[in-house]
């Protein structure tokens, strides 16, 4: 049972990432690979600053800012230099690998005796419950902020940008700027997940971001199946489904490990699982028609 609690908590840590991927992939229609690098960037900054006894409250805005810069860079490269978005993301991600190594100073930072978000705040006596409540409050605040943003005039312009660029430009929106802001926001959220997971797992690792984009993608795709199934247009319900997607994704992974799948096969399991949820609707439609 503890196994599933851990999965739930990880799912909550990854909710910010899932929201970030939802913004870049679903709202802007941009496949953004910067994610792998900005996630590790968030983790690396958190790790090194915690080992240097910095306050977790100070680290939080720095992580958000750093992730935002990484995303904005990808946005600038793709809009101003007209480099394909996928390639732009790969370039920034690759560059970030060195940056992250320089920040961390070595490839792994254990955080055994350092304080963290989960040790300085005490909401519940049981440490797992404590972590659960802190993460829940955190995720709730982020979701409320993103939800509000998407409802504003700026948010409408954002959502329209991925939909019909010609229309949005004709309606007075600088779509290049909009994409840069959008990718900055998405990667700030991703870095925030790195911040949370490092404090949750009590270590930072240079390879922690490997294939992290697939976790975000998987979560969003699970959410999308529900969205399409029930024809949901309400922004709040969509965001909550994305959060649920992040948690379901972690639970399924936990389940596969629990039934005895070799941990070495975890990446393979993950991608197979994502392939499955992407293709299942198509396969069943194929039969119907």
């Amino acid at each position: 049972m503890d196994f599933y609690l851990t999965a739930l908590l990880q799912g909550l840590c990854f909710s910010a990432l899932a929201l970030g991927i939802y913004i870049s992939m679903k709202i802007f229609n941009i496949p953004d690979i910067t994610t792998n690098g900005s996630y590790t960037l968030g983790g690396a900054i958190t790790g090194i600053m915690l080992t240097n006894h910095q306050s977790t409250y100070l680290i939080l805005p720095i992580v958000i800012f750093a992730g935002g810069i990484a995303g904005a860079l990808t946005g600038l490269i793709t809009t101003k230099l007209k480099v394909n978005a996928l390639l732009a993301g790969i370039l920034v991600m690759t560059g970030l690998h060195s940056v992250n190594l320089i920040i961390m100073g070595r490839s792994n930072l254990p955080l055994i005796s350092t304080s963290s978000l989960f040790s300085i705040l005490n909401i519940a006596a049981d440490p797992n419950h404590n972590t659960f409540w802190i993460l829940s409050v955190f995720v709730a605040i982020i979701t409320l902020m993103i939800g509000y943003l998407l409802k504003t005039d700026f948010g409408i312009a954002m959502r329209a940008t991925g939909n019909s660029e010609s229309m949005v430009r004709a309606l007075g929106v600088d779509t290049d700027r909009m994409k840069i802001v959008g990718l900055a926001l998405a990667n700030a959220l991703t870095a925030l997940s790195g911040y949370m997971i490092v404090q949750f797992q009590a270590f930072a690792d240079i390879n922690m971001g490997q294939a992290i984009v697939i976790i975000g993608l998987g979560s969003v795709i699970i959410a999308e199946s529900f969205i399409n199934w029930f024809n949901i247009t309400n922004v709040w319900i969509i965001l909550i489904l994305v959060l649920i997607g992040a948690i379901i994704f972690q639970l399924v992974l936990a389940l596969t490990l629990a039934i005895g799948v070799d941990p070495n096969l975890l990446s393979l399991t993950t991608s197979t699982f994502v392939l499955l949820i992407v293709s299942l609707p198509r396969l069943s439609f194929g039969k119907a028609s």
Binding site: K151, T152, D153, F154, I156, A160, V168, A170, L171, V173
Partner: peptide, 18 residues
């Protein structure tokens, strides 16, 4: 939402709910 965007074609798209 389409109409909202059109209603502020000549204006800034701000952080308030219109």
């Amino acid at each position: 939402d389409n109409f909202r965007l059109a209603a502020i074609r000549t204006k800034a798209k701000g952080l308030s709910i219109g």
